[in-house]
Design a protein around this nucleic acid. Structure first.
Length: 714
DNA sequence: AAAAAAC
């Protein structure tokens, strides 16, 4: 989901750039480097020397995964020597110490390179130079690495790369603002009458044996609908789903779910709820068709697009001329928003803010990059402000809580909300794992108004009685559908149960679907449901392609892809592969870092920071970075492994093309995967050509350069 | 089967 529409950062960044100086500004800082223009050089890629150090550094730290997917095993063998070297007798602490030393001695010119890179030079002529350098590196390394065939091929190809990046003007901030409104009011809005009465779906949850989460643990099992021996799925659950299949085509665009049977497993709906239906598909009506016996034919092996939530749609037109003040936000907050680069509300914000301020429970769905963080962050600050106690007491318990699925996302949300709160004297803090508790406990002790964090550490502190959630009046679950998946659901429930009884709850996600119903049922008695009109994929500013690549060519193709200019995020299915790819790219002279759960939090932060600051252009990540993380100007998202479910596709893809900017997504698949991928795309309602590719294809060199067509609606 | 989330 999209926290910060890129404007806040974008706006500021260009200013910073103008005065950008290498290193720290304060002479006392250890990173201080006086500005001297003598050594100005374009951004450089890692030299073989840097790489060597890097390799050494990683030796001690890198953990050999105990499980490697079959398709990767082969590769590992091929790279045997590399792994052996690392895993060998010299791995270990020595190298970790080494690590620290080398880290201090960042390659000279690195910072400068970054600054230039971030500055106007980013898409400028220096690129060519940088390219040259990169190629050079590559050639360079050929000597010591001729054991890697694909590299050779690649190096030879360097010459014909194009550098037409320059003609793509960097978007100015204001342009972006304009861009931002992807909305089209001409889109047939969903009529209320379309909605099948909820009453039809009678699922009596209660008689359903409580599903063991253990089962779910082997997700594999669960996901494999083909098992018809599953006793636990209620037929009733399945029926609608099966039915849905027939109408898939005419289904209005966004499906929310592809989590195959997960859906079914998740307790669907209780009809006793007067609440609005979760489904608005007209076909639903016929749901008298309850093929209670035909579990098998449906074998929802593909996705079950979970019921859509029945929502009130807000379009850009509805928001025209509306200001944050109109929505009920005070001048202080509106001012803060403005200074953060959000002068006027986005549709999702306009839709949810009034309801949140009115104290209602809210379900909000807005596509990636549409500004959801502010949609809940701003009204929360407003509410707390309105009922502010006479004085801020030391150690006052938090009155608002925001839950996020990853630490990075929690940090990011905090960044935004803190910006809003600070303007009016509302304090926030982040409570996440992976770092010491001390400072967190300390800020709690001082007293905080809004708590933002991940479930684990929050529960931890609660158990230690260092955190009391009893005063929480508003709780938000960001990426709510994800937070309702196995492993997250229960902690989230436990946490929400500790909030003040009757406290207000908000659920947000770009792919909000009925997966959240368990939470909704328990915590949101009568929620307002909001979404934004005109968000079907066809209006997206993201261009999608699928590259069909032979397994043996995959790494070479990926390497060629990431050699493109511009910021690139590569997603992998496993941590090990993320690590390996990042290394491969680095070895090839393309500065890349990894981001996944096997890294220490410090490294995770560092990796993300490096990408944000332009120290590297390539981030290889697992799905830890799939949701919510905002990075400016990601030119390309590469899916080195196709996602399992369409929601994951949408979230990964959403790292680019934020706030109406153009973006591109390239998914690399094996030939055998075509059919499955097509199904997934269909579910996501994304149209993407399937293009066979082999290393060396020109196509692979222009993935970030060929401008993406903007949809007419923009 | 993977990934994320506490120590």
């Amino acid at each position: 989901m999209a926290q910060n529409p890129s404007r806040p950062h974008g706006a500021r960044r260009s200013d910073d750039r103008a005065s950008a100086r290498p290193g720290s500004r304060s002479p006392g800082h250890r990173g201080h480097r006086p500005a001297q223009d003598g050594d100005a050089r374009p951004k450089r890629r890692w030299t073989s020397d840097d790489r060597e150090h890097r390799e050494q550094r990683s030796q001690g730290a890198s953990r050999r995964p105990n499980w490697i997917p079959p398709e990767e095993r082969k590769r590992d063998d091929r790279r045997g020597p590399v792994f052996r070297t690392r895993g060998g007798a010299q791995g270990g602490r020595d190298h970790q110490r080494d690590d620290r030393v080398h880290r201090g001695e960042r390659p000279r010119g690195f910072d400068r390179a970054r600054d230039e890179h971030q500055g106007r030079a980013r898409f400028g002529a220096e690129r060519d130079e940088r390219r040259g350098e990169r190629r050079f590196d590559r050639d360079d390394r050929r000597f010591d690495r001729d054991d890697r065939p694909q590299q050779r091929r690649f190096a030879d190809r360097g010459g014909d790369r194009r550098f037409d990046r320059d003609d793509r003007p960097r978007r100015s901030f204001d342009e972006r603002g304009g861009d931002r409104r992807p909305e089209r009011d001409d889109r047939p809005r969903r009529g209320f009458d379309d909605r099948a009465p909820r009453g039809e779906r009678r699922f009596d949850r209660d008689e359903r044996p409580q599903r063991g989460f253990r089962d779910r643990d082997e997700r594999g099992g669960d996901r494999r609908p083909e098992r018809e021996d599953r006793p636990r799925r209620g037929f009733d659950d399945r029926a609608p789903r099966g039915e849905r299949r027939f109408d898939r085509d005419e289904r209005p665009q966004r499906g929310f779910r592809d989590r195959d049977d997960r859906a079914g497993d998740r307790r669907p709906q209780r009809e006793e709820r007067p609440r609005r239906s979760f489904d608005d598909r007209p076909q639903r009506r016929d749901s008298t068709y309850y093929p209670s016996t035909d579990a098998k034919p449906f074998a929802p092996k593909e996705d079950v697009v979970l019921d859509r939530l029945d929502a009130t749609a807000t379009s850009a037109a509805d928001v025209e001329g509306v200001s944050f003040a109109d929505l009920g936000l005070g001048a202080g907050i509106a001012g803060a928003l403005k200074s953060m680069g959000a002068p006027s509300p986005f549709p999702i914000q306009a839709a949810t803010i009034p309801d949140v301020i009115a104290g209602r429970d809210v379900l909000g769905r807005g596509r990636t990059g549409s500004g959801k963080t502010i949609a809940f962050g701003a009204p929360i600050v407003e509410l707390l402000l309105r009922n502010r106690p006479e004085r801020r007491e030391l150690g006052r318990p938090p009155r608002a809580l925001i839950l996020a699925p990853t630490r990075e996302l929690a940090q990011q949300i905090n960044h935004t909300v803190m910006g809003l709160g600070r303007a009016v004297g509302i304090f926030t803090t982040v409570i996440v794992g992976g770092v010491k508790q001390d400072s967190q406990v300390e800020s709690l002790r001082r007293g905080v108004d809004i708590l933002i964090g991940t479930p684990g550490r929050i529960e931890d502190l609660v158990e230690q009685r260092k955190l009391n959630l009893g005063a929480v009046e508003i709780a938000v679950v960001d990426e709510a559908d994800h937070m309702c998946e196995l492993g997250f659901l229960e902690p989230v429930q436990r946490i929400l149960r500790q909030t003040r009884p009757g406290s207000q709850k908000l659920l947000f996600s770009a792919t909000l679907d009925a997966e959240v119903q368990t939470i909704v049922r328990e915590f949101l008695p009568e929620p307002a449901v909001h979404e934004v009109a005109g968000e079907e994929q066809s209006t997206s500013t993201i261009d999608h392609q699928v590259l069909v690549v032979d397994r043996y060519d995959k790494d070479a193709v990926l390497e060629q892809i990431v050699a493109n200019p511009g910021r690139i995020i590569v997603f992998t299915r496993t941590r090990a592969y993320a690590e390996r790819l990042a290394e491969q790219f680095s070895d090839a002279g393309i500065a890349a870092v990894s981001l996944h759960g096997d890294l220490t939090q410090a490294k995770r932060n560092r990796s993300l920071e490096k990408l944000k600051r332009g120290k590297v252009d390539v981030l290889v990540a697992t799905d830890v970075a799939a949701r919510g993380i905002h990075i400016d100007d990601v030119a390309l998202v590469v899916q080195a492994d196709p996602p399992d479910e369409y929601k994951t596709y949408l979230h990964r893809a959403g790292r680019t093309g934020r706030a109406g900017n153009a973006g591109r997504v390239v998914t690399v698949i094996a030939p055998a995967r075509r059919k499955r991928t097509q199904q997934l795309l269909d579910r996501a309602e994304i149209e993407a050509p399937m293009i066979p590719a082999v290393p060396g294809d020109d196509l692979l060199d222009t993935l970030t350069t060929a401008p993406t067509a903007e949809p007419a609606a923009e």
